[in-house]
């Protein structure tokens, strides 16, 4: 079998192995990859910067453990920034496994800054059916969440006095790994007019640029790169910045594989052409 045929019909497990090795490289070799900043991430940072001294924003943790590698660093950076600015945070979760992650995250970070549940932040908890929940939150947060995640009556929490619906929050940053992202745009922004920004996985990101250009989103944090950008703007390097070398090596390998497969493809095409010319000249 000619070399190009072997390359073109390579067992996919070799591709898996090569990629696996590429991901291991940054573990062994320390790498510092510069991150180019983008306007859409800067817009989210600027918005969060204004949430200070008692101002309130809603942070929606609408992802599952599967996408936490990309979205968790964003959540951590935003929560830390709000707490540093003495802003208030309202948290909700519209994905099944969001609450446990949110609880772990907010409890840990609140302890670092001495923030108190009910006074500086409120975690409303989880409700199924994201579209319906967002619609209900539009009339009053108490409709879907009469009690918070910890079982407290929302009305009895000092921070929630006078806070009823999207009209009472400065805006929403939704970190979503699924359809909840669409519902925040359709219902949160289009129906209730609350400013919405999204943090999404890298795969989802290109889907949301149209909304960004249309002004239905005021900002977008795309994948681990977006998280790294956010951390860089906030001058607080974390998991996002640490994730970039892994993404870089894996992308480099995929690019190399695409080059190799195309070289083999053209070599095969040239060989076939030569072969058919040789036959026709006989």
């Amino acid at each position: 079998m000619p070399w190009y045929d072997r390359v073109l019909s390579i067992d996919r497990r070799w591709v898996y192995l090569i990629l696996g090795l590429a991901v291991v490289v940054p573990v062994i070799v320390e790498m510092h990859i510069p991150v180019t900043l983008s306007r859409e991430v800067q817009a989210v940072y600027d918005f969060v910067s204004e949430v200070r001294d008692g101002e309130l924003m809603l942070l929606a943790i609408d992802y599952d453990p599967s996408t936490m590698a990309e979205l968790h660093p964003m959540a951590e950076a935003i929560i830390r920034q709000v707490f540093e600015q003495n802003g208030h945070l309202l948290l909700s979760s519209l994905s099944q496994f969001g609450p446990a992650m949110t609880d772990e995250l907010i409890t840990r970070i609140a302890a670092d800054y001495g923030k108190v549940h009910g006074e500086d932040f409120v975690f409303l908890g989880y409700k199924p059916y994201p579209a319906i929940t967002i619609l209900a939150m539009g009339s009053d947060f108490r409709v879907p969440f009469p009690n918070d995640y910890y079982g407290n009556i929302v009305d009895e929490l000092p921070m929630m006095a006078g806070v009823h619906n999207f009209g009472d929050v400065r805006g929403v940053v939704a970190l979503a790994g699924g359809t909840a992202a669409d519902f925040w745009i359709i219902y949160g922004n289009a129906k209730f007019g609350v400013p919405v920004a999204l943090g999404v996985t890298g795969v989802m990101a290109s889907d949301y640029y149209p909304y960004l250009q249309a002004g239905q989103l005021f900002g977008l944090i795309p994948g681990i790169k977006g998280a790294a950008e956010y951390e860089q703007i906030a001058d607080r390097p974390g998991e996002g910045v640490r994730g970039i070398p892994y993404q870089t090596t894996s992308h480099a390998v995929i690019l190399c594989l695409i080059i190799v497969t195309n070289i083999a493809f053209f070599a095969k095409r040239a060989a076939t052409r030569r072969h058919s010319q040789a036959i026709s000249s006989l």
């Binding site: 996919r12 898996y16 599967s66 590698a69 390998v253 995929i254 695409i258 497969t261 195309n262």
Partner: peptide
């Protein structure tokens, strides 16, 4: 399971991205 997507994307890109 989600990270397996990276391997599958690499494999699909290898097979699909030919000029």
């Amino acid at each position: 399971l989600f990270s397996m997507l990276a391997f599958y994307i690499a494999s699909a890109a290898y097979r699909a991205f030919r000029a």
